[in-house]
Design a protein around this nucleic acid. Structure first.
Ligand SMILES: [Mn+2]
Ligand SMILES: [Mn+2]
Ligand SMILES: [Zn+2]
Ligand SMILES: [Zn+2]
Lengths: 147, 147
DNA sequence: CCCTAAATGGTAGCGGCTCTCATCTGGCGA
DNA sequence: TCGCCAGATGAGAGCCGCTACCATTTAGGG
């Protein structure tokens, strides 16, 4: 059988190591937390969860880690219109890649995935003149509870 | 021949009038400015342009107008990742409807349109359980100048 | 014209995020 | 194994987009 694919957490930390970064406690904690999420978190949510888990990390370090991970393409930064950035592990393709549905009224964020949509986006990318690094799709509306 | 379709500016102001709103000078100035744009502007850009045109409008009024226009669906609020909201006339379908390409490096925002993408999004909307009111697509990457 | 509720604009305040700097530490070389 | 030090961390000040507040102005029906 093939060797198990490295987890996103291991891949991320090892890649950074390979580039000469040091991976102190704050970065390891944030990467580990992100690796346990299904969908996006805000920086403040990460701060609160890490504190509650007994592994507090400074908010400045959280933002710094997220900036580095964004730059290197390991996390996707998502804006859903509330003025707060959200972050999640980036899966450029494959089973985990998804987009977001946001309730205009209660702010709930849910995930969806669609292959036809991905194909259409891929077709557009080739015609833009940009070297396209990623994409976001946000559907806005009223969730089942709010409509 | 058919009567000319009312402009977005006239449609917007008349619809608000019909709902009992009063359309003072600030609101007329902001709607008029938006009606002259090809793509999205920030609130601060609107403040500066209106001042430069000799028709200054308070920044608070600009945000208030944009909030009302957003609520009523006359403008689309767009977040492209820089922490600043942008706004443009909403065209839910038809020749003016488009999405955005953002350069990660220099921040430039350009528009693109694609029918196949719109069709794919429409197909997704039906399966979500949400009453979907709108959607955003942002492609991120490096523009021709920056790559 | 007048009246009144809606609209406006200056400004204080809020909150997310960034910057600065003193301190700490991962991990390499001796 | 141990000391070194560049990179990492965290507390707190500061920045900036946006909102709240309230005194003043004004749209527009009567
Ligand atoms: Mn996608
Ligand atoms: Mn569209
Ligand atoms: Zn909801
Ligand atoms: Zn660029």
């Amino acid at each position: 059988m093939a060797a198990a694919a490295p987890s996103w957490v291991d891949l991320t930390l090892q890649s950074l190591r390979g580039e000469g970064f040091r991976n102190g406690g704050a970065r390891r904690a944030v990467v580990d937390l992100l690796g346990r999420q299904e969908c996006c978190l805000t920086a403040q949510e990460m701060f609160d969860r890490l504190r509650d888990e007994g592994n507090p990390v400074g908010i400045a370090s959280i933002y710094r880690v997220l900036e580095l991970l964004s730059e290197k393409g390991f996390v996707q930064r998502i804006e859903v219109g509330s003025g707060v950035a959200r972050y999640e592990p980036a899966h450029h393709a494959g089973e985990h890649h998804h987009h977001h549905l946001v309730c205009d009224r209660c702010g709930k964020v849910e995930a969806f995935a669609d292959e036809e949509l991905e194909a259409a986006i891929h077709n557009v990318e080739g015609r833009t003149g940009y070297r396209v690094a990623g994409h976001d799709v946000v559907l806005r509306g009223a969730c089942g509870d709010c409509r």
